[in-house]
Design a protein around this nucleic acid. Sequence first.
DNA 1: AACGGAACCTGAAAGC
DNA 2: TGCTTTCAGGTTCCGT
Length: 243
Amino acid sequence: MLGRALAGKRVRDVIRRGKWLRIELDDGARLFSHLGMTGNWVQRDVDAPKERSERARLDLVRTDGRRSSVRYLDSRRFGRLIVANEDIAEWKKLGPDPLADGIDVRSLEEALGRRRRAVKDALMDQSVLAGIGNILATEALWQARIDPRSRSDALAPGDVGKIVRGLRWAIRKELAARDVAESEGWVDVFSAYGHAGEPCPRCGSTLARVVLAGRGTTFCKRCQVRRRVRARATERHIGRPHP
DNA sequence: AACGGAACCTGAAAGC
DNA sequence: TGCTTTCAGGTTCCGT
């Protein structure tokens, strides 16, 4: 399956957008990889034995002539590996990638203003921004002092700017933690994520946990303020005096 | 169209 | 010491 489509070919390009990786081969075939929750690519010796959660391996010859083996590990099997001859739909519908493209406040404002879902849910929509998941959305909204349950279209002027700064802060923090952890283990640099029941690092109030769009969501009820849609009277609701 | 909830899996940690 | 429950960095499908 994978082997048949890939064997003997040369890797032309590897790029990441959001949570997807695209490995392009010299004949135009592409291998798409999504890690799901527990997926990971690791490098091993060519002779290294198969590991418990190993789902795939690519053995290759590097440009310096050395042989190398990369293994795809994924205990929960939520990740995906897809071979195709053109870009897959999941790839094509990805929104701007914060690192590759930057975040444009105006277009994010527009995308969020079109949705009525909870703002945290909207931020995790991969067509809004590529790569934002539960951690970054949770941390960014904590930093922005916005209640994650606020409706996306209820954000006030200036809120999207705060969210963008929150996202940049969260991404920078997470990348720095990655460097420290050196791919092994997990460094907890989070202010809210995973700290439900503990004091908010900013105001000391106890962090709350709710479920939003099926995902655990931690936030501070005191300093993350809920935005509400302004109650706007429409002609249907007012104007005509009852007889 | 858009929402909530369940399903897909395995494993670690907490609860009893 | 077990046995059960809960939770997990994500996405997709299904019913309302």
